[in-house]
Each structure stands twice: as C-alpha cells, then as structure tokens.
C-alpha cells in the first residue's frame, strides 16, 4: 500500500487525512460525550461517577479510531462518529439540565 504512495491520487490522500481527523478529533468528542454520559447516568456519588466515566472512556476512543480506519469510506467514518455523538449528547443533556438538579 505504501510503496504506491507516489502514484496515489490526491483524493486518496485527502480521504486518509479525513479519516485521521475523524479518528483524532471526532473520536475525542465522541469519547468525551460517552464519558460524560456514563458519569451522569451511573447511580453513584459524584466523584465515583466521574472516575468511572473517565476510566472507561479510552475504550470508546479505541473503538472510534478502529472504526474510522476500518470502515469502507471516509464519509462513513464521520457518519459513524456523528450519529452516536448526537445520541450521547442528547442523553447527557437530558440528565445535565433536566435530571437530578
């Protein structure tokens, strides 16, 4: 795959760049949202809930990165991050503004 780099079209390189950005930035946002969501929904004391959310979050990051490079196109990579991010943001938002307080 690498040896052909010099002959690879620009569109391929842009797609790789897009996947890298999706994995690093999109993956981080998804991970942060998952971590917040878990923290707000687990029935634990605040400190414990925060620690639980943070401890598990890196597994989500891993899965997000693997997804971004494993799926068929760069567009699907983004879609696969944005959709769950919206769901998690909604769930977290419900609890943050409407929940315990």
């Amino acid at each position: 795959m690498t040896a052909k780099h010099s002959t690879l079209p620009v569109s391929y390189r842009l797609a790789v760049l897009s996947r890298v950005l999706a994995a690093v930035l999109g993956g981080y946002v998804l991970t942060a949202l998952a971590s917040v969501c878990l923290t707000l929904w687990v029935p634990m004391a605040r400190a414990d809930a925060a620690v639980t959310g943070m401890t598990g979050s890196f597994l989500v990051y891993l899965l997000a990165v693997l997804w971004c490079f494993g799926c068929r196109t760069a567009w699907r990579a983004w879609l696969g991050l944005i959709a769950p991010s919206l769901v998690l943001a909604t769930a977290a938002g419900l609890m943050y503004w409407g929940g315990r307080a």
Binding site: L33, V36, L40, R46, A49, A50, M54, T55, S57, A92
Partner: peptide, 14 residues
C-alpha cells in the same frame, strides 16, 4: 492522566 486528558466527566459532574 485521565483527569488531565479527559476532564469532561469532572466538568459535567461538578
């Protein structure tokens, strides 16, 4: 280093 790199949970809970 989770409290440094992934502080969103703390910000949300506190």
């Amino acid at each position: 280093f989770m409290t440094m790199v992934m502080p969103a949970s703390i910000l949300a809970a506190y």
